[in-house]
Design a protein around this nucleic acid. Structure first.
Lengths: 250, 250
DNA sequence: GTCTTCATCTCGGAA
DNA sequence: TTCCGAGGTGAAGAC
C-alpha cells in the first residue's frame, strides 16, 4: 500500500502503522496533541497543543504549529527516529549525531496517523538566482560599463570569495559583489572586505555592488567608502525541462 | 469535526473537504502526485512527482518532497489560497501581494486529503540564544575581562547596531559582537564595520568578537585587523513555564 | 511600510 | 571534515 491513514488510532495501531511506514521509506504524517522537548545547539520546550508532525525517510523531522512557514521544532536530514512507550505514554524520539541533538515528542493524543510512500524523481528548476546574474554579466559585460572585462567567477582571494573579478577599460581591477535582491549593509561590508584584501596586493582596485536596489544605510556606507553601485535585476530565464527540450527541436 | 480524512477522494470530495477545512480555519494536508509552478521574486517549475502539501489557516503554504528539511516550494503567511477546476483539472493556487508571488499546484492525483482544526495556545520557550549571551555578560562582565563595564545593548550607531557597547578599565570604548555559534568572516566584517564607525567619532575603540569559537579565516582576519576574541558559550537557562513557576515558589 | 540582524538557520560547493 | 556564502531565506524588533 502506497498510502495508509487511520483516524483515532490505538497505541498499538500507531506503533504498527509507524513501523510499516519506516520499512516502506514513506513520509509519516501525524495530527496530534503533543508536547515537545529539544536539546542540542540550543534547548527548548513547547507545552501541550495541536500540531502536525512530518517525518521523512531521510530523517528530517518537522513539527508545525498552525501558523508560520517555519516548523516550531525540527530535526535535519540524517537524524534517526524511533517510537517508544514509557510508562504507558507514547514518545517520538529523533536523535542527531554531530552535533548531538535530541528531539522528543510526547504524543498526548493522536487524531490521525498516515503515511505516503512518495515517488519523486523531479528536481526544482529555478531561475532568477545570483549565479544567473553572473552568467548574464559574462555574456554582456557592458551591463556593468563600457569596456568592462570579466575574468573570474567565484574567485577565492585572501579573505573570502569574490563573485566576479575583472578589469575596466583603464586596466583597473574591478570587484563585483552581486545581490539578487535589495543590497543591505552586510553586502557593502562584504564588498569592502574583498576590496581591502585586493588593495593589499594591487593598486587601483574598484568595488562595485551590483543589485536591483540598495537600502538607505547601504547607500550611505557605500558612498562613504568610495564604492560604486550598478542597478541590475536577476534575469528570469527559460529553465524548465520542457523549455530546454523545446529549444532542441526549434 | 476537528479532523477529517478521505483516501482517494473524488474531485467533488476534494472541493468539499477543502472548503470545509477553510471555513474551520483548519490545517489542510494533502498527499498528491502534482506539478508545481512558482513566479515571484524568482521563478520555478517542478515536474510531476509525489509530495506532501500543507496549507495553514494563516495562508502559509508548504510543498514537501520526501527529502530535506526545507519545502521545495512555498508561500509565506498572509497568502490567499484557492482551489480551482480548469479544463477538468484541479489546481491549488496561492497568491501573495507585496511582493506579488503566485504558486500554482496542478493536482494530477490526490491520494489523501485531510484537515486538522488545531488548537494551540503554547509558544516555544527557547534558551541558548545570542540575546541570552548579552544578558549573561551584563550580569557578569568579568566574563569579558576584569573591569569591563557594559553600557548599552543593541545600540544603534552610524552604520549598524552594536550588540554590546561598554568601556574597559582604562576607559576605552569596547564594542562586543556576539555569536551563539562559531564565528566566521561575516562576523569579523560586522565587528570591523562597527569599530570603524565608532573610531570616526571616538579614540581608543576596541572590538571584541565573543563566540564559542572562530573559523580559521575569521581568526586570520581578526588578527590582521587588530580585533580581539573572547571564548563564550551561549548559556542554556531554565526557561520553561514550569521552571519559571517553580522558582516563584522556591 | 523600511531597515537591520539573528537563526537549533538550511543548503550546496569547494578545498 | 571545515569553510564560505547564497537563499523566493523567514522572523523579530525598531523606527
Amino acid at each position: 500500500m502506497k498510502v495508509e491513514a487511520k483516524l483515532d488510532p490505538t497505541p498499538e495501531e500507531i506503533v504498527d502503522i509507524f513501523n510499516r511506514a519506516l520499512s516502506k521509506e514513506a513520509i509519516v504524517n501525524i495530527f496530534a496533541h503533543c508536547r515537545v522537548f529539544y536539546d542540542g545547539r540550543a534547548k527548548s520546550e513547547l507545552g501541550p497543543g495541536d500540531r502536525v508532525i512530518i517525518i521523512k525517510p531521510d530523517g528530517s523531522f518537522l513539527i508545525h504549529q498552525k501558523e508560520k512557514r517555519e516548523p516550531v521544532n525540527w530535526q535535519p536530514p540524517g537524524s534517526s527516529v524511533g517510537l517508544e512507550i514509557k510508562d504507558g505514554k507514547l514518545f517520538l524520539k529523533s536523535i542527531r549525531r554531530k552535533p548531538r541533538e535530541i528531539l522528543e515528542v510526547e504524543l498526548l493524543k493522536v487524531y490521525l496517523i498516515s503515511y505516503f510512500q512518495a515517488e519523486d524523481y523531479e528536481e526544482l528548476a529555478l531561475t532568477g538566482s545570483e549565479a544567473e546574474m553572473a552568467d548574464l554579466i559574462f555574456e554582456n559585460p557592458s551591463l556593468i560599463e563600457e569596456g568592462f572585462k570579466p575574468l573570474f567567477k567565484e574567485k577565492p582571494i585572501k579573505h573570502g570569495i569574490v563573485d566576479v573579478l575583472g578589469k575596466d577599460k583603464d586596466g583597473n581591477i574591478v570587484i563585483l559583489e552581486l545581490k539578487r535582491r535589495r543590497a543591505d549593509l552586510h553586502a557593502v561590508s562584504q564588498l569592502k572586505r574583498y576590496v581591502e584584501a585586493m588593495r593589499e596586493e594591487y593598486e587601483n582596485v574598484r568595488g562595485i555592488l551590483v543589485a536591483p536596489s540598495l537600502t538607505s544605510g547601504a547607500k550611505k556606507l557605500l558612498e562613504k567608502e568610495g564604492l560604486e553601485f550598478r542597478k541590475l535585476e536577476p534575469p528570469k530565464r527559460e529553465k524548465s525541462k520542457r523549455g530546454i527540450q523545446k529549444t532542441l527541436f526549434d
